[in-house]
């Protein structure tokens, strides 16, 4: 037994560890507070890459779990989602239609507010509800497994928790959010029409003919794409927070709290970026015909 056997393999340069790369060494120079945020962001990106890789490379075997998860989620969340969208948009409609009626431009109300809603309000409320209702329940579910050491037990038994827990849930959340886009737009239209009829006395035929004359397919596709991105973002953030929960009940509660706050902040930054890009690429989207 010579002294050379006590040298760790990494130090001999034979086998670098997983975090011996140049990027990791650069991160080590960052101040501690920034490093924490970078670590979280890196972990989320890592999880997203792993999930997408697993879902795309092996696209069979998780769809039954996805369908179950979607069914459960929709049964719990569809009524609150519809109530939240309807309540929010009906007061926006009432406020706005008052002013359009005063300016004598009631026929512009439908298209203007609907186009605005497509870009902002409807997507906001869908993403808030998805993050707040579905995402927080997802973090609570996965975090509870983590805190009860079920995930460690899965790893010991050779079951990949990312494949078994994260992939179906993230896929289902993304699909639900994407498929929520068009029904949310329909609820938007219904609540606006109720507002227009109730406050300004606009017949529903006028409302709908003005509306459909001014909506372009690009607008609708943009909403669907936006919702898809929101779903992927919220799913990844909430799954990451659940998988890294620790510290008993207070830790789990804090993980859910952080998941909701992080996904809210991320969603709003995404909204700013998405709208800036969309309106930059298609500057005459809202042009009236």
């Amino acid at each position: 037994m010579s002294s050379s056997s006590h040298v760790r393999p990494a130090a001999t340069g034979l086998r670098p560890g997983p975090y011996d790369g140049r990027a990791s060494r650069v991160v080590a120079h960052f101040p501690a507070r920034l490093r924490g945020g970078l670590k979280v962001a890196g972990g989320m990106a890592d999880l997203l890459v792993k999930v997408v890789h697993s879902a795309v490379r092996h696209p069979r075997g998780y769809w039954a779990a996805v369908a179950d998860d979607m069914y459960l989620t929709m049964r719990q969340a569809s009524a609150p989602i519809a109530a939240a969208i309807f309540g929010f948009l009906i007061f926006t409609s009432i406020l706005t239609v008052q002013f359009f009626a005063m300016a004598g431009a009631t026929q512009l109300f439908g298209p203007v507010l609907f186009v605005q809603s497509m870009r902002t309000f409807t997507v906001w409320i869908v993403s808030m509800v998805v993050a707040g209702v579905i995402g927080s329940a997802l973090t609570a579910d996965i975090g509870a497994r983590k805190v009860r050491e079920e995930i460690d037990a899965m790893q010991v038994m050779g079951v990949d928790p990312i494949r078994d827990l994260a992939v179906p849930r993230i896929v289902s959340l993304t699909l639900i959010t994407t498929m929520l886009a068009v029904p949310a737009l329909l609820v938007t239209m219904l609540s606006m029409q109720v507002g227009a009829d109730y406050v300004a006395g606009q017949p529903s035929a006028h409302f709908h003919s003005n509306l459909f004359a001014n909506i372009s397919p690009v607008d609708v596709v943009a909403v669907v794409v936006n919702c898809f991105l929101v779903g992927l973002l919220v799913g990844t953030v909430c799954c990451y927070k659940g998988l890294t929960a620790s510290g008993g009940s207070i830790g789990l509660g804090r993980a859910v709290n952080q998941a909701v706050v992080t996904s809210f902040v991320a969603v709003w930054i995404l909204q700013l970026a998405f709208n800036a890009l969309l309106l930059g690429f298609f500057p005459n989207l809202g042009a009236f015909r």
């Binding site: 973090t139 609570a140 975090g143 509870a144 009860r148 207070i250 859910v256 709290n257």
Partner: peptide, 10 residues
Amino acid sequence: GPVGVGRNTA
């Protein structure tokens, strides 16, 4: 337990 706290938060 912890699960209840998580569920109530959601």
